[in-house]
Amino acid sequence: MDYPIEIILAMVIVGQVCISVPILLSRVTTHAMNVPLALFLLASGILALNSTISLLLPTYYALYTAVAFPALFLLCPSLWFYVQGLTADTPWQLNKGQLKHYALIAPAVLISVMILFLPKDIHMAIFIHDKDIIEPFVTTLLIGILIMMLLWLMQCIYTLLKIVRRLNQYRKKLKDVFSNHDKKELNWMNWLLFITVSAWLCAAVTVFSSNLFNHALFNSNTEIVLSLLLIWCITHFGLQQKPALASLAEGATSDITHTDENPPNDHHCPTKKYQRSALDQTQSVRIASKINSAMEQDKLYLDPNLSLQALSKHLNISPNYISQTLNERLSVNFFDFVNQWRIEAAKPKILANNSTVLDIALEVGFNARSSFYKAFKQTTGQTPSEYRKG
């Protein structure tokens, strides 16, 4: 009864993968992180076809399992490298040293070769009918699969922890570089991780429950729906998302002339901290004064796309020195500093009550009503409506 639905969903997954992977690979010269994303998407698509292949093409199921097993070990490192590239300070490249993350693929391929050597009836008995076969070769194979699955689960946990930590660090860096970071925070990655964990747990629980209790806790429809959501999330957002910090680094040029507040050996990457900084107290006071003057007189905060790099070019001062001054002398990051000026500019407009909150937010440099509300409440302790009422 459920087979037609499962087949339709499987075909949708195949279609998404077949369309998205070539597009991603065509963009590799621009963003190398599209390679691991394409690998993750391809591996997810292969694994999602498990029940469909066993139902429609049982003759080729042995070949499918031999291909699908190594694909499982592409998931974690590929997802990690994609997140790493998306959150990197500079354009990301895959180097030979990083290939060690794919080390589990080698024993997985060995197990795949062993699977191909299984007689067809034994393969079907093990992988389709869940029967116990007492043979040395089969026992060795199953022990190998069990060990690899446990290693994969450990790799998943380790990778997900690394990704969460990386995303937290990235979101902190955004506040040192951009005055608005809507569509840069990668909030969709939270949903991706949730769906990924759900899909992987569902698959793992199904495997172990079917072996231990002779019945699966989740049916194949649950797995394929989660797989569809995962692949849709990857294709929808992954094809649109660009690395914010790396794009800023690519746009950085040497247009800033050398001054006493911008020494030639200063690093121009705005996300690096102040290692071996030569900034002294006198320079810091002078830079703080220039930053405030730029906001008060030139009203740079009105630009919704204002970034640390743009302010650096305007003042002809190293972005590292501006960031260091904001953090150490003014005790604020770039994001909060600019938004404080925007909130101060918004206050009289709110009290005048001649415009909507959204119009005021856009006038003073915010690019979303939600961002304005959040910043206003953080700065004043009140919502715009509460502030207007007095």
Rank of each mutant, 00 (worst) to 15 (best):
I133N: 04
E250D: 08
I8V: 15
A68Y: 05
L72G: 03
K272Q: 13
F335T: 02
S247L: 12
N95V: 13
V197N: 02
Q169V: 06
P348R: 11
D336G: 00
D121F: 09
I234K: 00
L55P: 00
I105Y: 03
P384Y: 02
T139Y: 11
C156I: 08
S312N: 07
Y60G: 04
E250S: 09
A10Y: 01
V164F: 11
Y321W: 05
N219C: 07
T259H: 12
Y301E: 02
D132K: 14
M1G: 09
N180I: 11
D121M: 08
T379P: 00
A199C: 10
I7Y: 10
H236E: 03
L86T: 00
W341S: 07
F194L: 14
S355M: 12
P348I: 07
S227P: 01
D130R: 15
P119T: 15
F366N: 00
T140L: 09
N320V: 01
A32Q: 13
P270V: 14
L25D: 06
T356M: 04
T253D: 11
E296R: 13
Y3N: 05
L57Y: 15
L104V: 11
A252S: 12
W80T: 01
A310N: 09
H267P: 05
S293Y: 09
G45I: 02
N95A: 10
W200N: 03
S385C: 02
P243D: 07
S277P: 07
L358S: 14
S112Q: 12
A62E: 14
T271R: 03
A71N: 07
I350D: 04
A10N: 14
L72K: 06
L174D: 03
A352F: 07
N180C: 10
N354E: 15
P264G: 11
R329C: 03
L37F: 13
S227Y: 09
N211L: 13
Q309V: 11
A68H: 06
P77R: 05
K290W: 07
L94A: 10
R369T: 10
L362N: 06
A43V: 09
Q240H: 13
A10W: 00
L56Y: 07
T235W: 04
L47N: 05
H236K: 06
S385I: 11
